[in-house]
Design a protein around this nucleic acid. Structure first.
Lengths: 236, 236, 236, 236
DNA sequence: GATGAATGAGGATTCATTCAT
DNA sequence: TATGAATGAATCCTCATTCAT
């Protein structure tokens, strides 16, 4: 009964139009639709942000976008699809943002710099996309949850990689440190992400100097937490 | 549109019953009411736990409690009031459970012991009252939020007090540490609570040895975070 | 997500009421509900009759019953359930009505009388329950369709039985008639039912003398159709 | 609320085109329009067949036709008009197909032959145009109903004519038969059409040998029904 | 107090129909 | 003409809340 599936035909083949003469470009229609979709997604982001996914009504989203409910349903088969699409876009941007955070060259830098390099893009992204937060936590939408879990797992993996790289077994023991097991590393990675997450909440909820203070505090926490288990890279 | 309003003042001062002599029926009435309320709150706890506050319907709560919706409304003016009351009770139990955590004598003990003393009851309480978690986070309801904020503020205050006690200005500077400002203390307290909260999520989501590992990890994080700003109490 | 399932608890245990004193009969509530259900089914019958199942709106049914849409949904989980319940009741009555039509003693009577005996109750039932018609044909509801198919198959079987009884092979050939095969009998039964069905439409659409005329015409058709293949029972 | 209204008078008188000289473009236009209409009607036939009239959406028809909804409304003022036009065309084809059935010379042939002559084209037509069936029965739309009634009345009239021709009063009484009144004739015609209709359902639902069996059965029914009231034409 | 029926506004979704391009 | 976006009323259904008994 569902029709589902986004429109977004994007087939700008041009010449394939039936009974079209020659140089008649029958696009431009898509453009309006594309704009509407962006508009609707922006509206959805706002509403999700303010009320959360569950409490957000499609009518409210349509109203926020300045269109009728029917128009919304011309582009999205249901409320969930809006969240999925928006989530997908945000996730994509998140991946991009995080991509530059985990550059290999960062691994050689001392922990404070590494934290800056990794955290700053993540924080910036979340500050610029507050809807990301609203959608990812407690949307209850399978599609979103799954994709978010993938993102989360990805970050977990990357954090673990960084940790593993910084806690090389051979250099681990001068001061009698025991190299952590894989399970321990995973726990640490979970804790790190959790700390980042909870700090992000504080950061997003504040602004200006206070926000900066929380950013600094987050870095302090992680620095103090991780420093003892890290083999400071020798000065090159 | 929202009604809010506290409910059921629960002030069973006892003396107010006019025809009270010994074990008379009138007492029965109130006792039955108390029982109903407890029944309803227990049901609400279960439903909130399973579905979250927003998705929980009053009818579902009434059904879970084995009573009719009308009966529910005999004791609570609206859905919000249930959450508020439940939150209040959980808060109360939380205070009871945590009460011993913040005993003044703990303040004199070294940080690791203090952390044990404070965190263990908190963790135990949360493990035993999962509804507490469900209610406090993501209810989005003004009434709840307020109640939760009170709890949160209370804990914040206590944490701040502990911190302030451990970081007394006069003893602060031997190693050249600058005494933190009130604002800084508040930030730290927020961070500490956030870390506890996020760790609690990991703890509640795991069990057995893994749960223990996360508990240990939480303590490690806080220890390393707070240790540098604490004036180690001199051995008595 | 659906709750489904009729209410109709009907548990008039009486004494089982919690905290009930003694002779307090806590029924009577059911009575109102039962009445409402009947009311709603009657309203549904009317609306289905006028507009057909698909075009009938639940709001229209509720309005016809003089209640709010919510009330309707207190008793029926969805539109389909109304049709199923109504269909079930009508089917039940239909079975009752048809039950007396196919009494064994009718088989010995001459064809005209047998036709009277069988058709009159069927016709009467359909005239008194026009909703039956509306629901059974083209409702598209699986539950209904299935039950109706069962009814139809039942009637088919009974007609076949009657035919088989009246066309006994041993007496079949005095005039050179060949005994029909089972497949042929089935075809005949289908035709007979089809003729009844189509005539019923004409009968239901007319009234008074015209209706009687169509009834007579139906019997004429069947008489002439079936007579040649029937072994007239010898006068007792 | 209903719009009704016939559509697309299709009066391509030809002369009305101003700039018509020979094979000029203007003609093209109309030709294209004709093609579009045919396309749309074919699509509508398919959709009506699959889902029935009520459940068929104009968007679905447009999609099936490979055009946009706007285009559809360029040729038909509303959904009803599509059904009416399609019904009209089918009716037209039906008339063409049936035309030979009611040829005057058939009236002189003995009933079995007459039945063959009349029924075979009707059956063939319905087997080849299943949409006809879907449209005519259960559309519930005034416009359709009217159109269908016209068709039905037309067939009724023809059947009545045939009957009247075969049951001429003057030749009616040799065996003591009373000439039927007009009202009686109408009833008989209705019954005949009903029998054909119901048999057609069985025929359309089966295939191969079974279908043939039902065709034969239909003819048997009608033969036995009508034979007694027909004055067998004397051999010329 | 307790019950279960009653309410009605509100939410998601559909679809015939219109409009700008 | 053709397109696809836009509309909005109408549909089914839910649920917090109230009411009669």
């Amino acid at each position: 009964m569902r029709e589902s599936s986004r429109t977004k035909s994007t087939d700008k083949a041009g010449e394939s139009t039936p009974e079209a003469a020659a140089g008649t470009p029958p696009r431009r229609r898509q453009a309006r639709g594309e704009r509407r979709i962006a508009q609707l997604l922006a509206a959805a982001a706002g509403v999700f942000c303010r009320t959360g996914y569950a409490a957000a009504s499609t009518n409210a989203i349509a109203r926020e976008a300045g269109v009728s409910p029917g128009t919304l349903y011309q582009f999205f088969p249901n409320k969930e699809a809006i969240a999925v699409e928006l989530g997908g876009q945000l996730l994509h941007r998140a991946h991009e943002a995080h991509g530059q955070a985990f550059l290999p060259e960062n691994l050689d830098r001392p922990l404070p710099e590494l934290l800056d390099a990794v955290l700053d893009p993540v924080i910036a992204f979340n500050c610029e996309n507050p809807a990301f937060w609203a959608l990812m936590h407690g949307s209850g939408v399978p599609g979103i949850t799954q994709e978010h879990d993938e993102l989360h797992t990805g970050m977990l993996t990357r954090v673990e990689e960084v940790l593993r790289a910084c806690v090389t077994p051979e250099t681990a023991t001068p001061a009698g440190k025991a190299a952590p097991t894989t399970a321990e590393l995973t726990h640490v990675a979970h804790m790190v992400l959790g700390i980042v997450k909870t700090s992000l909440e504080l950061i997003l909820a504040s602004e200006g100097a206070e926000r900066d203070a929380y950013v600094a505090e987050l870095k302090t926490v992680l620095l103090r937490y991780l420093d003892p288990m890290i083999t400071t890279p020798p000065p090159r």
